[in-house]
Computed example of a mutant assay.
Amino acid sequence: MSEENCHVICPHCQATNRMPVAKLNAVPKCGKCGKPLLTGSPNELTGQTVNKVIQKNDVLTVVDFWASWCQPCLMMAPEFKTAASQLPQVVFAKLQTDKYEQGAAPYNIRSLPTMVAFRHGKEVARQSGALTAHQIVQWVKSLQP
């Protein structure tokens, strides 16, 4: 992969799309299913999709690890969604840890909610605790080159 191209996983069909970095701002569509690659809203991950989305996306990917019983997680959910809408070139995703324990296990999540930012399959930052949309946006912006 050259620096001018990147891989983006389709949140709809899980196809890997190779595309020019310059086209990330142009609402890119999946070459397989034709749906938008960068949706501006969080993608729901499963035990089967979490590793592919984290490992194969070259764009900044922020995963919210949460649980259905966690009140701070539930309070942060709309804030995370708002932050995603403000940063459409970033992949935002959610993994429900009480439903997909095996999918969350490799990421060593010790408290909830925890957001982990990945780039090229590598963890670049981690933030635990509920944040507002503004705080999430500021944190994510601080991670961008």
Rank of each mutant, 00 (worst) to 15 (best):
F80W: 08
L60K: 00
P106F: 03
A77F: 05
L131A: 11
S142T: 13
P88W: 05
L24A: 03
N25W: 01
S68H: 09
Q86N: 10
C10V: 05
H12P: 01
Q138E: 15
S128H: 06
C13S: 09
K23M: 06
L60W: 02
G34M: 03
T114D: 00
P145C: 09
T46H: 06
L112I: 11
V53G: 01
P11R: 02
P88D: 14
S41N: 08
Q71D: 10
P11K: 05
I136T: 14
I136L: 15
V27N: 13
K32E: 12
V63E: 01
P42A: 07
W66Y: 13
T82A: 14
V50D: 10
I54L: 06
A15N: 13
A133D: 14
N57A: 07
D64T: 01
C73L: 08
Q86E: 15
N43C: 02
Q144S: 13
C6W: 14
K56W: 02
K141R: 15
V8S: 07
K81H: 13
C73P: 12
A105M: 12
A26W: 03
N108H: 15
C6K: 10
P72M: 04
K99C: 02
T39G: 06
V124T: 07
V62E: 00
R126T: 12
V53L: 11
A125M: 04
V63G: 04
S111L: 07
N17V: 03
L112T: 01
M1Y: 11
L87Q: 14
P11F: 03
D98T: 08
A125I: 10
E101H: 06
C13T: 08
H120G: 04
T97M: 00
Q127C: 10
W66T: 07
Q89P: 08
S2W: 00
F65W: 02
A125C: 11
P88I: 10
P145K: 13
V63M: 03
K99W: 12
E123F: 02
N108Y: 07
S68L: 07
V8M: 04
K122S: 09
K122P: 01
L131F: 09
I54H: 03
G47A: 06
L45E: 08
K94F: 03
R110G: 05
C30I: 06
N43I: 08
P28R: 08
I109V: 15
E101S: 07
Q102C: 00
R119F: 00
D98C: 09
D98R: 07
T82M: 08
Y107N: 06
T82H: 08
K35T: 06
V21G: 01
G34V: 04
